[in-house]
Simulated assay, not measured.
Amino acid sequence: MIAIWTMSGLPHDTIMNLPNNTMDRFLKESLHLVEFAFLYVLIIYAFLANGKLTSFISLAAVIFASFYGLADEIHQAFVPYRSATLIDAIKDVTGAFVAFTIVNYMYFKKNSRIGRWMAMFSEWARPQ
């Protein structure tokens, strides 16, 4: 969360500026989807490591990640050289909800390999 907030407070070309403007824009726009999906997954793994992951916690995590995305867009509205747009907020929420859908399908509904890995991680990481 600190990394997202910090990078959102910097001009868009501070960390990376590709010579091809189309590729640079595509990559940076797609990061909206990735960073909030990743935030959701990190929250999930924190609960999974403590053996407390439930479908309700998963829903709460996606709502939290989505609201953090909205808060980040509001933050960007006050940063010089940055912008806050509705489409960026939609991408933030979409990234979190795509990850939520995958986790709920793989872990809670289907006995998949990813779901088994998550369960093994939970058993391994759970405090004794």
Rank of each mutant, 00 (worst) to 15 (best):
G115C: 00
A49S: 12
F47N: 08
M23I: 15
M7E: 13
K91T: 01
W124P: 09
F64Q: 05
G9L: 07
D24S: 11
M16I: 14
W124F: 09
N20C: 05
L31C: 13
V34I: 13
M16S: 11
S55G: 10
A119I: 09
A71D: 11
L70P: 01
L10D: 08
L31Q: 07
A61R: 00
R126S: 11
N21Y: 12
G51F: 05
A119M: 11
A49P: 07
S66K: 09
D92F: 10
T54D: 04
F97S: 12
V79R: 14
Y40D: 07
P19Q: 03
S83P: 05
I63R: 11
F78C: 07
L48R: 12
T6W: 10
V98G: 05
A71C: 10
A46W: 11
A49R: 03
E73P: 01
A37K: 03
I114F: 15
F47S: 12
L39F: 15
F56P: 00
H32I: 05
W5E: 08
A89N: 07
N50S: 13
N104W: 08
R82W: 10
M118R: 04
F64W: 02
H75M: 11
N21H: 15
G115P: 05
A99K: 05
A37I: 02
I15F: 08
T94I: 08
W124H: 09
G9A: 08
K110M: 02
L53E: 06
Y45R: 10
D92Y: 12
I114D: 05
K28R: 15
F38H: 07
A125G: 02
L86A: 04
D72M: 06
L59Y: 00
F121P: 08
W117M: 14
S66C: 06
S122A: 11
I90K: 10
V62F: 03
L70G: 04
H32G: 02
E73T: 06
T14A: 06
A119Y: 10
V79E: 08
F26C: 02
P127H: 02
L31R: 12
V41T: 07
A60R: 13
A46D: 05
I2H: 04
L86I: 07
F78T: 14
T101Q: 02
F108P: 01
A37D: 01
H75E: 14
P127G: 03
K109D: 00
G51Q: 02
T6D: 06
A71M: 04
G69H: 12
I114R: 15
F38E: 15
S112W: 15
N17D: 10
M16P: 06
T6E: 11
Q128F: 04
N17E: 08
Y45D: 01
F100Y: 08
A65E: 00
R116E: 04
Y40T: 14
A60Y: 07
L27G: 04
L86M: 05
F100L: 03
S83D: 14
S58L: 12
I90V: 13
F108C: 00
T14V: 05
